[in-house]
């Protein structure tokens, strides 16, 4: 469970979020929509506690922002998978090593790493590309690698920050379908996007970030 309780976040005395409260339950698929700069990424950062609320609290599973110790931040992040618009792949190592990296970091042993990496790559349809370098892949394929990297640690929540922002419409739809499939298998997904066309394609919960507030949005049938 992710719970925002009366969260206010100010950056350089500018209020980005103002007294925001909402919940995301395990297994949910939630779109976080809003204009660029509205605070979508800030909400995701507050979830993986890259920044902390100015007031109020964020709860992610058993971790609460107001009680989070320095040493607990990495442990919290191991329960999450994070996907970025700009991929953030390590271009000095292969696709396999990029995905395995997460497991090395979290102390998983050799044979288990191999099994889990190959499974994650199979899930995103890239097993055959495992020895390639990131630069040799298309944008859509690179985003699939990022999804595999986020999935390999079997996270409870997958946070996707504009995952289709750099992709063409067809590839964007494929990525969305992939995320839907992952969600069907039980992983909760919070996807920040400003691509309303994509949001309209699937019937999922929508949270709109506007002027520092978060609103539940119902899609009107068109």
């Amino acid at each position: 469970m992710i719970r925002f309780h009366e969260v206010t976040f100010a950056y350089n005395s500018t209020k980005v979020l103002d007294n925001v409260s909402f919940e995301v339950k395990p297994g949910e698929f939630v779109f976080l929509v809003g204009q660029t700069g509205s605070g979508k990424s800030t909400i995701l950062k507050l979830i993986y506690m890259d920044c902390l609320p100015t007031s109020g609290s964020v709860m992610v599973g058993k971790y609460i922002s107001s009680q989070l110790g320095r040493r607990e931040t990495p442990l919290l992040r191991r329960t999450l998978g994070i996907i970025f618009q700009d991929f953030r792949l390590l271009d000095d190592r292969s696709i396999y090593d990029n995905v395995a990296f997460t497991l090395h970091v979290t102390g998983v042993k050799g044979a288990e790493i191999r099994k889990r990496v190959l499974r994650a790559l199979a899930e995103v349809g890239l097993s055959h590309q495992r020895n390639k370098m990131p630069a040799e892949l298309s944008g859509g394929e690179q985003q699939r690698v990022v999804i595999a990297r986020a999935l390999v640690n079997t996270p409870h929540f997958l946070l996707a920050d504009e995952p289709t922002g750099n992709l063409d419409p067809t590839t964007s739809r494929e990525i969305l379908q992939l995320l839907k499939d992952i969600n069907t298998r039980g992983t909760a997904i919070i996807m920040a996007t400003h691509n309303y066309e994509l949001v309209r394609r699937v019937n999922e919960r929508i949270l709109q970030v506007r002027e520092g507030k978060v609103y539940e949005v119902e899609l009107r049938a068109s």
Partner: peptide, 13 residues
């Protein structure tokens, strides 16, 4: 970039 990625995937300091 490597350091940032490490931080985000839950590497300890």
């Amino acid at each position: 970039k490597l350091i940032r990625t490490m931080e985000l995937v839950g590497a300890t300091r």
